[in-house]
């Protein structure tokens, strides 16, 4: 496996996991749109509380574990294991829209990498998983394919995940841009913790308890006015 300099790793991760990378992250709220509608998220504190739980008890944590598993599988050239992580990532979706959210972003990410930043790991993943690719698994495979370190990849992925949701929250509540930055400050430790847990953990550590967030993503399907696809 090729190794990459720190600067090159940073360059690639910043390219892949910023909002301009063509995965359409901005169109998914991960159920936040319903939580705002229902009054569960109404200010800075309730937004950061909700997102901190996503990182500690929910899909942020699970995504990190799946990304790490995909990174390890792809680094070892174990394509069956990579395909299994992909299938598990998709199966863990609690609702139709959350399934769509990970599949659409995973597919877009994998095809953008294949087109612009090709590597064997993404080719193998696309061959086996067809178009149904879980987003964190695609990121883990691409990072491994480029020899990017797991810890930096996790930090960049989780930052992208949470920054996208902070941005959704800022638009939906609505909050000022300064509050958006305050939310990112407040969530820095939670992001670091989720990344650390994924580095030492494995698939047996998967687990969440975001029952109302999951229900919210189901209710969002019938929400009358919607800006987001999830």
């Amino acid at each position: 496996m090729a190794t990459t300099t720190t600067e090159a790793a940073l360059y690639r991760l910043m390219t892949w996991l910023t909002p301009s990378f063509p995965v359409g992250a901005f169109s998914y709220s991960h159920g936040l749109e319903w939580a705002v509608e229902a009054g569960d998220i109404r200010d800075l504190d309730s937004l950061t509380g909700w997102l901190a739980d996503l990182l500690a008890q929910g899909s942020g944590r699970n995504d990190a574990i799946l990304l790490a598993e995909a990174w390890r599988a792809a680094s070892a050239g174990d394509w069956d294991r990579l395909a299994e992580a992909c299938a598990l990532g998709l199966a863990l979706s609690p609702s139709q829209e959350r399934h769509l959210e990970t599949v659409m972003q995973g597919r877009s990410f994998a095809s953008a990498i294949a087109a612009s930043w090709p590597c064997a790991a993404i080719d193998r993943l696309r061959e086996r998983a067809d178009t149904a690719i879980a987003y964190p698994v695609a990121v883990g495979a691409a990072a491994a394919g480029h020899g990017l370190p797991l810890d930096s990849t996790l930090a960049a992925y989780l930052h992208g995940f949470i920054a996208n949701l902070v941005s959704a929250g800022v638009r939906l509540v609505p909050l000022g841009q300064t509050d958006g930055q305050r939310a990112l400050v407040a969530l820095e430790d939670a992001v670091a913790r989720a990344a650390r847990e994924a580095i030492v953990g494995d698939l047996d550590d998967l687990g969440a308890a975001m029952f109302r967030a999951d229900i919210g993503s189901m209710k969002h399907e019938t929400q009358y006015t919607r800006l987001f696809r999830s």
Partner: peptide
């Protein structure tokens, strides 16, 4: 083919965790 998976994990002060709005909201 794996079509659905669930993984629940609650540990420690379950009552306090389930009070949190994104988890149980008191449920």
């Amino acid at each position: 083919r794996l079509i659905f998976a669930d993984a629940i994990r609650l540990d420690g002060d379950i009552d306090a965790l389930l009070d949190r709005p994104a988890l149980g909201g008191g449920g």
